[in-house]
Design a protein around this nucleic acid. Structure first.
Length: 186
DNA sequence: CCTGGGATTTTCT
DNA sequence: GAAAATCCCAGGA
């Protein structure tokens, strides 16, 4: 069951936490890639210097300014894609970066490198062609499978790779499942 | 036009 | 720990 549109109509940091334990599904050329989301980060508003949106709307980041429940995908360092879930109302830039998933094959955890935002996009065949895709589509979506992560198993921490962002680098806007081996950094 | 750096990862010393 | 891979964007000449 795909998460309904209204799921994405919540505050960004709430969504970032609620996405833990949900399942990212990617269908590509007849294959289905499934991963349990184990690590996320929030990027929120005009003043978040870690966010692409802090310097205004551009051709690259315009999806972040669009409707919630869509995929924002960008190329970083010229070679890796990162997958984000757009949140908040139109014209307000915010998104949740999917930093890591636990890959599932035939109902079991399987050895696929998905412990990092660039790696999971490579493994799940996610690239710029999916930028702006509605998460109600049949190419990529997120679903719940009855899993419920216990609040005490959610760790809240500083975001990764944003040392340039002034005081924003210390915001505790990263969330991950305690003890999960696919979390990119502890 | 040129330069520098980035929401990353791998490979080297 | 440092360097390299190499696209997108901002800022300065």
């Amino acid at each position: 069951m795909k998460l309904p549109r209204k799921f994405y109509n919540q505050k960004t940091l709430k969504i970032a936490q609620d996405l833990l334990g949900k399942f990212l599904i990617r269908k590509y050329r007849g294959k289905k890639y499934i991963g349990k989301i184990v690590e996320t980060e929030g990027y929120y508003g005009f003043k978040d210097r870690a966010s692409h949106a802090s310097r205004g709307e551009t051709e690259r980041n315009k999806i972040m300014f669009g409707r919630a429940g869509h995929a924002y995908i960008y190329l970083i360092y010229g070679m890796y894609y990162c997958l984000n879930i757009v949140t908040e109302k139109e014209k307000y830039p915010a998104a949740v970066l999917i930093r890591a998933v636990e890959p599932i094959c035939r109902g079991r955890t399987c050895p696929v490198p998905t412990n990092g935002p660039g790696k999971l996009c490579r493994a799940f065949k996610i690239d710029k062609k999916l930028n702006g895709e509605n998460l109600q589509s049949d190419k990529i979506w997120i679903e719940a499978r009855g899993f419920k992560i216990n609040k005490k198993d959610i760790v809240r921490a500083k975001r990764i790779g944003v040392d340039y962002a002034g005081k924003c680098k210390d915001y505790l806007w990263r969330f991950y499942i305690k003890g999960n081996s696919y979390v990119s950094k502890i």
